[in-house]
């Protein structure tokens, strides 16, 4: 459900009208509009935003880890409309045991590397991604560095038998 103060907002109400049960909540903070989207609906909402509401550019995809709070992860999408010169942030909360969400590579091809980066550094899986593999870390790396339970400092020794 859309909060009272966002009913007047044209973008928020248009999204809520096109996908009635997709928008969980929303806010305007520091002049930036944020909509919280149900994770299972993200690909459909993004398609609506791109084709009907002129959000031609996917500026960025990233995630935030709120460990130990649940839902632990937030996948964050930054969209940009060149026509209306406006930006929009979408957020999808994910639980730690089901850190999986649909890929939006079908909507914007640029999501390919952005989602691979989130997968690599947070361990969030993207369903239907064409090439989901590590992008920053070596292929045989263990763990996901940007998770909050991953240490900032330290060495990992691996002693191998001759």
């Amino acid at each position: 459900m859309l909060p009272e103060n966002l009913r007047e907002n044209s973008v928020a109400s248009a999204v809520a009208a096109a996908a009635p049960d997709a928008v969980a909540s929303g806010k305007i903070d520091h002049g930036e509009l944020t909509l919280e989207i149900q994770p299972e609906q993200i690909a459909a909402v993004c398609a609506i935003l791109k084709h009907q509401l002129s959000y031609a550019r996917l500026s960025d995809v990233t995630a935030v880890d709120w460990y130990p709070r649940e839902p632990r992860f937030q996948v964050v999408y930054h969209l940009h409309s060149l026509e209306t010169n406006s930006r929009l942030r979408l957020k999808c909360p994910l639980n730690s045991e089901a850190a999986e969400i649909d890929s939006v590579t079908g909507v914007w091809r640029s999501a390919n590397w952005y989602e691979r980066e989130v997968f690599d550094l947070f361990g969030i899986r993207f369903r239907n991604h064409p090439d989901l593999k590590r992008i920053m870390m070596p292929d045989d790396w263990e763990g996901h560095p940007l998770r909050k339970d991953y240490p900032v400092h330290g060495y990992r020794y691996e002693y191998q038998n001759e």
Binding site: D29, H30, E32, T34, S59, D60, H78, R87, R89
Partner: peptide
């Protein structure tokens, strides 16, 4: 709070 700030860097949109 949270903020996404973009500027025009020599290479394009830096956020």
């Amino acid at each position: 709070g949270e903020v996404y700030q973009t500027i025009e860097s020599p290479r394009g949109e830096l956020g």
